[in-house]
Every structure is written in C-alpha cells, then in structure tokens.
C-alpha cells in the first residue's frame, strides 16, 4: 500500500502541434518526456522505504544504473491494454508503422515483447509497483558502497512480493518467480534504449535537456 501511494501522477508527452511530424520531432518529444520522467522517477525513489536511508552516493549510483529500467517498466505497464502499441504517454501512443518511421522498430519490439509477457501474466498494479521497486534495488552497479544495505532493501521488497502472491494468487505458486524472471528482458531492453538515445546524443541533432544528458552520460 505504501508503494501504491507512492505511484506518481501520469505525464503527458504534449508534442508541439505547430511542428510537422518528422523523425526529429518524434525524438525531441521522447527526449523531453524522458527528461520529465526522470524528475518523477527520482522523486518516486525517495518514497521507496529504506531508499532515502542509503548514502547519497549509493542513491546516485543506483539511479544512474536503473533509471531506464524503471522508465521502460512504466511504459510496458501503460501499454498493457493496447495490443502491439507502445504507450509512451496517454497522448503519445506508437503503433508499428509509427515505430518504423521513428527508427524504433527494434526498441519498440523489445518493449512489446515485455508488455506481452506482462499481459499474459495479467500483471496487476500491485505487482507492477513492487516489480518497479525491486528493479530499482536490483541494480548491479559496481559503484555501490554499502552492498549489504541495498541487499536488505531488496530482501524486504522480495518478501513483500512473496507475501502478496501467497495471499492474492495462491493458486499460482510460481507466479512471483515468473514475474522476477522478466527482469533480464527489462534490463536488455533498457540497454537497447540506452544505446539508441546515447547515439542520438553523439549525433547531436536532437535537443536534450540537461538531466537527461547527465543520466545518459552516467
């Protein structure tokens, strides 16, 4: 219930209606949305029980390594009601044709694969918020100093997931495991996204806000 209450309000992409649709416009819209999502994710992390007690350095290392996983898990969850469409925001839904035009076939394909897994599992919101918090604490950053504290946080969230599943889905004894086994695909997809947007940064054609740039560089 704590995690449910910590769920942030949804953001809107608000693509500029005065600019004609183009590859550049799509990327600009996505990068602007990602920058605002980052602010929200950082604020959300502070509400994860135990996270603010970590050292500031460890909080930074963790967020620098998992922010895209958290962001993409959110996109996959939003996309659940829309078959084969990626809901970056309620006002920015990409179908396969749009993905092709935006050069996002591979990335959106991966997000779609993830969303399909969650759709098949009929992932509920409680599971989504717990999985997102677990993804946060499951950072394998080599820069974490107090590994024990992070492990404790992960254990507490893992326990919460197991407890939830044993009461809400007692007919599916392997459900928690199935949910956790989606995390490798989430990390793989986040890495794919990172490469895509890092290459965009290197090309230098798409305007990017400072926080987004900083996190891409990290």
């Amino acid at each position: 219930s704590h995690l449910m209450a910590a769920e942030p309000e949804k953001l809107f992409a608000m693509p500029d209606p005065l600019v004609q649709d183009s590859y550049l416009k799509t990327m600009t819209t996505l990068c602007d949305l990602a920058d605002r999502e980052l602010v929200v994710i950082i604020g959300w992390a502070k509400h994860i029980p135990g996270f603010p007690s970590l050292s500031l350095a460890d909080q930074m290392s963790i967020l620098q390594s998992v922010w895209l996983e958290v962001l993409i898990l959110g996109v996959a969850f939003r996309s659940l009601p829309y078959e084969d469409e990626i809901v970056f925001a309620e006002d920015y839904i990409m179908d396969e044709d749009m993905s092709t035009m935006a050069g996002l076939t591979e990335l959106n394909g991966a997000i779609n694969q993830l969303a399909r897994k969650y759709r098949n599992l009929q992932l509920d919101k409680e599971e989504f918020v717990m999985l997102k918090a677990i993804a946060l604490t499951n950072s394998d950053s080599v820069h974490i100093e107090d590994l024990e504290a992070v492990q404790h946080l992960k254990d507490v969230l893992h326990e919460a997931l197991l407890e939830y599943e044993s009461t809400k889905h007692s007919d599916e004894p392997r459900r928690a495991g199935k949910l956790l086994m989606t995390l490798p695909l989430l990390r793989q997809t986040a890495n794919r996204a990172l490469h895509h947007f890092y290459n965009l940064k290197v090309e230098g054609k798409v305007p990017m806000h400072k926080l987004f740039l900083e996190m891409l560089e990290a």
């Binding site: 604020g43 502070k46 500031l56 909080q59 930074m60 967020l63 620098q64 400072k210 926080l211 900083e214």
Partner: peptide, 15 residues
C-alpha cells in the same frame, strides 16, 4: 564532481 550533478541536487531536495 558528483556534487555538481542535477541528480545530486534533486536527491537532496526534501520533497
């Protein structure tokens, strides 16, 4: 160097 990061500032803010 880390202290100059926006992430650092956002984590330090109380809200």
């Amino acid at each position: 160097k880390e202290k100059h990061k926006i992430l650092h500032r956002l984590l330090q803010n109380s809200s």
